[in-house]
């Protein structure tokens, strides 16, 4: 039955009069725009969407990050162990004095980790790329980094390498290493979760994170 439905639908579409193929004038994406200007534009765009953006020096970034997260009332910070930036985090947290937020690693599959995930109050991931226009971070979850790290905890901390900031989304998709086959999930994020469904009054953190803390690595 389903196979027949498919054939009948396609046959009806094929019987329809053919239109001339409209001209294909899609602009070819340009080479990525370099550094500084794009980072400043990204910062402004994200801030306009109520994300908090800070810059971190590449040297010793993890220790500096820990300093800046202190005093925000976060009890823990979830991270994924398999990522290339995990060792720096672990080192920084091992080196510094005790105190919140405690660094906590994701373990196993979501089925095993679900309760702890939903109880966590912050998580850190990396953005694979970013686009200054329209101001988005491109997250690429996968084996090393779960999808739900950037969604379930109320505070989402994102690291953005400065050299991965592109001018436009077109450039980020073309130059960001997302050649097909695409990963099972790519997410563009522009700010904290929000809604305006009640009298068009803007409110944050309705289902996803209510705070998005972006750290650009310079």
């Amino acid at each position: 039955m389903p196979e027949h439905a498919r054939d009948r639908i396609l046959a009806r579409l094929r019987r329809a009069p053919r239109e001339a193929q409209p001209p294909d004038d899609a602009a070819t994406p340009q080479a990525p725009a370099p550094g500084g200007g794009a980072a400043a534009a990204l910062e402004a765009a994200l801030a306009a969407m109520r994300a908090e953006v800070q810059r971190l020096p590449r040297e010793g970034w993890a220790g500096e990050l820990r300093e800046r997260l202190r005093g925000r009332g976060l009890s823990s910070l979830l991270y994924a162990r398999g990522t290339p930036w995990a060792p720096a985090l672990e080192e920084a947290w091992a080196a510094g004095p005790e105190g919140p937020p405690v660094l906590a690693a994701w373990e196993g599959t979501v089925e095993e980790f679900r309760d702890r995930l939903f109880a966590a109050d912050a998580a850190i991931t990396r953005a694979e790329a970013a686009a200054a226009d329209p101001g988005v971070l491109v997250l690429r979850p996968g084996p090393a980094e779960p999808r739900l790290l950037s969604l379930v905890p109320p505070v989402h901390v994102v690291l953005v390498p400065g050299e991965r900031i592109f001018g436009t989304l077109e450039e980020a998709l073309a130059g960001g290493g997302f050649a097909p086959p695409l990963p099972a999930n790519l997410v563009l994020v522009s700010g904290p979760s929000k809604t305006a469904d009640i009298e068009l009054t803007l409110a944050f953190g309705v289902h996803g994170p209510r705070e998005l803390l972006v750290f650009i690595l310079e």
């Binding site: 599959t109 979501v110 979850p141 779960p146 999808r147 999930n185 790519l186 997410v187 904290p192 929000k194």
Partner: peptide, 24 residues
């Protein structure tokens, strides 16, 4: 639709959880 430059999330789904993925 809403006068936004972009929505908070654009979710691009190209498959179920793959081998080695912890979630999805």
């Amino acid at each position: 639709a809403t006068g936004q430059r972009v929505t908070t999330y654009v979710n691009l789904i190209s498959g179920p959880r793959r081998a080695g993925d912890p979630d999805g």
